[in-house]
Amino acid sequence: MDLSSDEAGTVRKVVSGNRVYADRLKGLDLAAAHADGQMLFTLHATTCRARRGPRSGRRPDHLTPSPSSR
């Protein structure tokens, strides 16, 4: 999961004790989370370019790289 929240995110952060989990949302759960204004995140695999070819490593258009990753 990427560290910064994303308005078009599909992942909810779940804290249980001293562990953090990612809950992937779909369908009605995702729509309800967006309607409630919940803070959602993007899966790291969606934005990470590691181990991908030059054509498949493209970031989604609504995400911009952070200054530290340039």
Rank of each mutant, 00 (worst) to 15 (best):
P67Q: 15
Y21R: 01
L63C: 13
R52V: 09
P54C: 04
R55W: 03
R19M: 03
A50H: 10
Y21S: 01
Y21W: 06
R55E: 12
H34Y: 00
R52S: 12
S16Y: 06
F41L: 01
D36P: 06
Y21V: 01
M39G: 08
E7R: 13
R24N: 09
D2N: 03
R59P: 09
S16K: 15
D29T: 00
P65W: 00
G9T: 04
T10N: 15
R49F: 04
N18Y: 07
T10E: 14
K26S: 12
A33P: 03
L40I: 00
K13I: 05
L63V: 14
L30M: 09
D2A: 12
R12V: 03
L25H: 03
T46M: 07
P60S: 14
K26A: 15
A8Y: 05
A8G: 05
P67V: 09
G27P: 08
G57Y: 02
R58D: 05
H34K: 06
Q38F: 13
D2S: 06
V14K: 01
D61F: 11
S16M: 15
R52M: 15
R51E: 14
S56T: 03
D29G: 13
T42K: 07
S66A: 06
R55I: 05
Q38G: 05
F41N: 00
N18K: 09
L30G: 02
T47W: 02
A45M: 02
A35R: 12
K26R: 14
R52G: 05
R49Q: 14
R52P: 01
A33M: 04
S16A: 12
L63W: 09
D29I: 00
S5E: 10
A32K: 05
R55S: 07
H44D: 13
A22D: 14
G37Y: 09
L25T: 03
T64N: 10
A22C: 13
G57E: 03
D6M: 04
A50K: 15
G37S: 12
T64I: 08
G17P: 01
E7Q: 12
P65E: 00
G9S: 07
N18M: 11
G27A: 08
L63S: 07
C48F: 00
R59F: 07
R49D: 06
V11Q: 02
D61Y: 13
Q38Y: 11
V20Y: 00
L63G: 06
H44Q: 04
V15N: 09
M39N: 07
